[in-house]
């Protein structure tokens, strides 16, 4: 069963642009990305859109559908009112390249700044003995498909471009949480995540969790636990006094660390 679907797609580039209306044929069971492809194949051959797997696994086709950050491939047309015009715009937080494609290099730079997994002296070489109970928390964060929807929706950078210099964003807070909870990781990145990556900018308003297509509990399971872990080492005199928590490879070792510089001969 096919029907006419009304789309309003932002067309333009860094020099400006506007919303343009299209009417395309849509079929039962289709998703927004199908409609965009249809537009591209029949009416706007050069309509720029980023996509790969069309199965919600690669996280490429991120855009804003009726103002909400979403994966176009996972947004079914049946979720809209019949006759409703669907507005599709590029991610707002990042510089636009063309049409629905934005420059997300901010995220790749932040990825580069993550001090990587570093095995403990106790188990320096794989295979590691690690138990399911100990890897499970980090496994949740490794489900991340890097669609950057959380980065895009977070008001810290969405509404304040200048904060990009200080704030890594939810995707990277789950990465730091993943490493901090990794049962065989030796580095302590807590000062680094607070002081250099801007964990403190987060005011836990949970929009990252709301838009995550993988349903990762970004705020409850990663950011808040990280804030608590940071509090342990930075803000809680009692823990520091009583616990004498061993700060394995403390901030000193991270001072020497620079992305990409520590390895190559």
């Amino acid at each position: 069963m096919s029907y006419d679907l009304k789309l309003r797609i932002w067309r333009g580039d860094a020099n400006g642009g506007q919303l343009r209306d299209y009417v395309v044929q849509a079929e039962e069971g289709q998703v927004v990305l199908d409609a965009v492809h249809r537009t591209q194949a029949t009416q706007a051959n050069d309509l720029a859109v980023r996509w790969n797997c069309k199965a919600g696994k690669c996280g490429s086709c991120s855009a804003e559908v009726n103002g909400m950050p979403r994966l176009m491939c996972m947004t079914r047309l049946s979720t809209f009112e019949p006759g409703e015009t669907i507005t599709i715009t590029p991610l707002r937080t990042f510089p636009v390249i063309r049409d629905l494609v934005t420059d997300v290099s901010f995220n790749y730079e932040r990825a580069r700044q993550v001090p990587p997994f570093t095995p403990t002296a106790k188990q320096p070489k794989a295979p590691f003995t690690m138990f399911q109970a100990d890897v499970e928390r980090s496994q949740e964060f490794r489900k991340c498909i890097e669609c950057w929807l959380c980065q895009n929706t977070c008001h810290v950078v969405r509404d304040h471009e200048e904060n990009k210099a200080a704030f890594a964003g939810p995707r990277f807070f789950i990465r730091y949480a993943e490493l901090d909870m990794h049962p065989n990781d030796a580095l302590d990145r807590k000062d680094y995540v607070q002081d250099e990556q801007g964990l403190g900018y987060c005011n836990i308003t949970k929009c990252c969790t709301e838009v995550c297509p993988e349903h990762i509990k970004i705020t409850d399971n990663a950011i808040i636990p990280m804030k608590e872990r940071v509090a342990d080492v930075k803000y809680d005199p009692l823990v520091r006094f009583l616990g004498r928590r061993s700060r394995r490879n403390g901030p000193e070792s991270l001072k020497d660390w620079a992305p990409g510089a520590h390895h190559h001969a």
Partner: peptide, 15 residues
């Protein structure tokens, strides 16, 4: 695994 991959584990803690 050496580079950070987290495979599902056996009860004995192996991959």
């Amino acid at each position: 695994e050496q580079w950070g991959a987290l495979f599902d584990r056996t009860p004995a803690g192996k991959i």
